[in-house]
Design a protein around this nucleic acid. Structure first.
Length: 573
DNA sequence: GCCGTTTTCGGCCCGACTGTTTTCAGTCG
């Protein structure tokens, strides 16, 4: 699959073109194209020129470059640009306060092309001698340099939610506060979050900014204006606060939820309809002074005035949601309250930390109607995988427990390893006794694409395997997905009716939103799972549901929304 | 470089904050 490397190439082209001070719209076109390629599920190498040109954001120029890249592994213009600027110069753009213009100036004037040279020049006071630079900018660059060196990668959605809730709690009591809501990629439910955005409506913005910049967890104040402030929380997470009047809250929430691409498309639509939209409201273009907003108090009003049904934040990525909203054809997204149970989880019989009884109690407490209690299979020694005899004993225990339980019905489940040669880790007769069999890969990550695809296909063709867990095997920030042919695997899942899991572990989130959407298009059933290893981790269901929502999934796409009798019916099939 | 409910040419989203400057450029989101 060349898509990832080509996406990276397009993004790097955009940066290089910025340094080259190329046309800003050409630069934007490369960024848009990178987004478009990232959202494709088919390999760019497998698409015809006609198919490429159908993709919005890809025109003749980019299509040429795709063909060149597929054929030769290079793009000449990219190579030429890279030749022009030293590699270290690109790194410098990661320094906050240093954009393409200033970086270029530093390179032209002082031949600065590395963190090291930048640090020395700034410390010696040589930057402030450059026209347009001054003492403050020099100091800010030094600070930015320090931050970049201890650069924090994006945090996981789960962690971001925890951090933002902590800040919200401390701001809720500030006098004059009317509304407060997290925005940004966190509200859109992106798998990782760069920094935290919080939006408020208040009668007393000063008090809010004052409290915000003095929170105990604030390490440094980056900016503090009348309506906007940025701080660095301890641990290096940036948190931005915006304050608006109540009448603008909806417009501002829409604005700061993004995504940028969604907002650009929305504002272009607004202009075509004779409106202009900013964070304060929707205005007629003829209303030059923006005296009378047409909408602004709620997000719903903004979308309605633009002839659109309300677009849930998770869909705002400019992947066709505006066209769908126009035709009133948005999906009715899965809600966590639709979920009636979970397939994939563990107990202390393998590598979990809670007992079978405690897990079952916790599932019941979540209001679930059924719960398939799982554990690892025998090969996964590091996780205390269970031998066949232990599995049979566990099945007996579950049957006995079920006799005493009324509310949440228990089923037996197992996460069974797909071995290096594609066989399942238990014999078929045992698999037949287990209610829910989930197959997963925990070994042989470095096998070839053919081998791993073959293992997944063989597992799905086993009639006892109900579901495949964490399809790609990635761990966010730690492990790349193993090599497998997505199209082929989805094709076989469609044919065999094998379900695919959306794993809610914060560092997995696997299927990805893009693959889950591709699976939906083929009508493949999916399961949202917690993969819980303790009672608390059953709350990871919220993460799995968020991924499903980002993938446009509805109740009917998800097995967990089935009632207990419906579930038994599906398992029988 | 892309795109079309004005357009195949001429547009391309919008504003806050900061710092270096006396009206604006650069950066950021």
């Amino acid at each position: 699959m060349l898509n990832k490397s080509f996406t990276d190439l397009l993004n790097e082209m955009a940066v290089l073109l910025e340094l080259n001070q190329d046309n800003v719209f050409r630069i934007r076109a490369y960024q848009t194209a990178a987004q478009a390629v990232a959202a494709l599920t088919s390999d760019i190498a497998s698409l015809t020129r006609e198919q490429l040109l159908e993709v919005s954001g890809i025109g003749k120029g980019i299509a040429d470059k795709i063909e060149e890249f597929v054929k030769t592994g290079h793009v000449k213009e990219h190579d030429d640009l890279k030749e022009k600027f030293p590699a270290g110069l690109l790194d410098l753009l990661n320094v906050s306060g240093l954009g393409p213009k200033r970086a270029r100036l530093l390179y032209d004037e002082l031949k600065i092309d590395s963190f090291d040279k930048l640090k020395k020049a700034a410390a010696a006071g040589r930057l402030q001698k450059i026209p347009g630079f001054g003492e403050k900018i020099e100091q800010n660059i030094l600070k930015g340099l320090h931050l970049a060196e201890q650069a924090r990668s994006r945090m996981l959605l789960w962690e971001a939610r925890r951090l933002v809730n902590d800040v919200l709690l401390q701001l809720r009591g500030v006098p004059g506060l009317l509304e407060i809501e997290p925005a940004g990629s966190l509200r859109r439910g992106k798998e990782t979050v760069g920094d935290l955005d919080i939006l408020c409506a208040s009668r007393n913005p000063d008090a809010l900014i004052e409290r915000f910049t003095h929170l105990p967890s604030v390490e440094r104040v980056l900016a503090a204006g009348a309506t906007k402030s940025s701080v660095l929380l301890s641990g290096g997470v940036q948190c931005d606060l915006r304050v608006v009047a109540a009448g603008s809250f909806g417009a501002a929430l829409q604005y700061f939820t993004g995504s940028k691409e969604h907002n650009v498309a929305l504002r272009e639509r607004a202009l075509r309809m004779g409106y202009t939209v900013n964070e304060y409201g929707l205005y007629r273009v003829s209303d030059k002074k923006q005296a009378k907003p047409v909408a602004g108090k709620t997000e719903q009003d903004i979308y309605k005035k633009l002839g659109l049904s309300f677009i849930p934040p998770e869909l705002r990525e400019n992947r066709g949601e505006i066209a769908a909203a126009e035709k009133n054809r948005l999906p009715e997204l899965l809600e966590e309250s639709d979920v009636k149970g979970c397939f994939h989880n563990h107990t202390d019989l393998s590598d979990g930390t809670s007992s079978l009884e405690d897990m079952a109690d916790a599932a019941e407490k979540k209001g679930w109607e059924w719960y398939a209690v799982g554990d690892h299979s025998q090969s996964l020694k590091v996780a205390g995988g269970m031998a066949p005899a232990a599995v049979r004993k566990k099945i007996e225990k579950i049957r006995a427990l079920n006799k005493k339980r009324r509310v949440c019905r228990l089923l037996s489940a197992s996460e069974v390893d797909i071995l290096a040669d594609g066989r399942m880790d238990y014999a078929d007769d045992l698999l037949a006794e287990i209610d829910v069999v989930t197959g997963s890969i925990h070994s042989g990550f470095h096998q070839s694409e053919e081998q791993i695809t073959g293992r997944l296909v063989k597992a799905m063709e086993n009639p006892h395997v109900d579901c495949i867990a964490h399809l790609s095997g990635r761990l966010l920030g730690r492990r790349e997905p193993y090599a497998f042919n997505t199209d082929k695997v989805l094709q076989v899942a469609e044919r065999t009716g094998t379900a695919l899991e959306i794993n809610g572990q914060p560092d997995r989130q696997d299927l990805t939103d893009i693959n889950a959407l591709a699976a939906k298009k083929r009508g493949i059933p999916m399961a949202v799972s917690t993969d819980a290893h303790s009672t608390e981790q059953l709350n990871y269901m919220s993460i799995a549901v968020t991924v499903a929502r980002r993938a446009w999934l509805e109740k009917s796409d998800i097995l967990n929304t089935k009632t207990y009798p419906e579930l038994l019916e599906w398992l029988k099939d």
